[in-house]
Computed example of a mutant assay.
Amino acid sequence: MIVDRKKTAKDILGNPYYLAISYGGYREKSRDIQPTIQQLKDDMKILSAMGIKILRTYNVQLQQVPNLLIAISQLNAENPSFEMYVMLGAWIDCHNAWSGHTPNHEIESEHNAGEIDRAVALAKQYPEIVKILAVGNEAMVHWATNYFVRPKVILKWVNHLQTLKKNGELPEDLWVTSSDDFSSWGGGDPIYHTEDLIKLINTVDYVSMHTYPMHNSHYNPAFWLVPDNEWNFSNKQKIESGMQRALEFAAKQYEGVSNFVKSLGVDKPVHIGETGWATTSNGPYGADGSKAADEYKSGKYYRLIREWSNKEKVSCFYFEAFDEQWKDAANPLGSENHFGLINLKGEAKYAIWNLVDEGNFKGLTRDGIPITKTFKGQREDLLLEALLPPLA
């Protein structure tokens, strides 16, 4: 089958056939060691075998994304039936972000313009692959204290990209958004309900919102605690019920954003730009904290959010494809290192054991290692490590 590569964001977003995921291919403890094009191609084959057809990336400051686009274009040339599209992110910062100096959230970084220029150049070069441009990642939410900017900065760059589309310098069917926390899009605290946010919602092609019940198991735990009427449930039932509440929590945050957008008289799609569940944590989500992070719960959440989003025709860029150890390099058991569906040993986590059983990864390897199951596929061992949510 020869793929029609003229599909647009409108065609693929919200289409259950086009599963989405967040992707970083870094294997080492530093991003100074970039994945090779061959490694990126191997990753793309693995993700394709999982049914993934849209990737989300986060910045064009490093060589990974340009090389990723080369890798996908090579796979397209080698196999006319291969299909993979990209939501390409441009990283946005405030002045003094990550510098050791006090961040100035009222002024944007002087590096933003170059980042946008690089993203535009790649979108022009690979129009059959890059279908979405995202200005910033969690760049407006106030808890991103190292780097957040005001909505007017995101609005400025979204307007810039929309003007390039109107002038024919970018494809007219390329969709432009920003990917941010549900609250930043008006789905929570009214402090975010600013005139600039309303202008931004009117300017983007769709809203890309994030929701993380796992993090909220620590920060807003009311939904997570086992209620009194479930005290006599078995441990497994308590976990299952907790995961159902986690799904409902995510759906409620999605609904909050969707309702705010509609309240403005705006009719635009809302998709999930990020959600996920870590399999390990030695911090606030682990055994000494909210007891949320383990592989059984992660697998349950993956399946529940996929079922819900497919049914609702909402794209869900699940976070994330593979474990990456650079994110908390000094703390190997930190949760940020363990959000992947496949670990650094090439083992598929519980969420996708079924794909191993079905033979989807037959003949595929990551760094020369065939894809096998964690826990050697022993469900009893997996369940032994599942943590019981705290009682209310």
Rank of each mutant, 00 (worst) to 15 (best):
I2L: 15
D11P: 04
N15E: 03
Y17H: 09
Y17A: 14
E28G: 11
R31N: 12
Q38R: 08
L47I: 08
I52S: 07
K53I: 10
K53L: 10
N59E: 12
V60R: 07
Q63A: 15
V65S: 08
N67L: 13
A77Q: 14
M84S: 10
S99H: 02
T102I: 06
P103N: 07
I107K: 07
E115R: 04
A119T: 10
K124V: 12
P127A: 04
E128P: 09
E128D: 14
K131M: 08
I132L: 06
I132H: 02
W143G: 03
V149K: 04
K152C: 12
L155T: 03
H160L: 05
T163G: 10
P171K: 03
V176G: 00
S179H: 12
P190L: 13
L197C: 02
K199A: 08
I201G: 05
S208W: 11
N216K: 14
N220V: 13
F223L: 05
L225F: 15
V226K: 10
N229H: 11
W231I: 13
W231G: 07
K238Q: 11
E248N: 15
A250F: 03
V261R: 00
G265H: 03
G265M: 01
H271L: 10
I272H: 02
I272A: 02
G273A: 12
W277K: 07
Y285Q: 12
D288Q: 11
D288C: 07
R303V: 08
I305N: 03
E307R: 11
S309L: 05
N310F: 06
Y318A: 12
K327S: 04
S335E: 09
H338T: 00
I352P: 02
G359R: 01
F361K: 09
T365V: 12
G368E: 12
Q378K: 15
L388P: 08
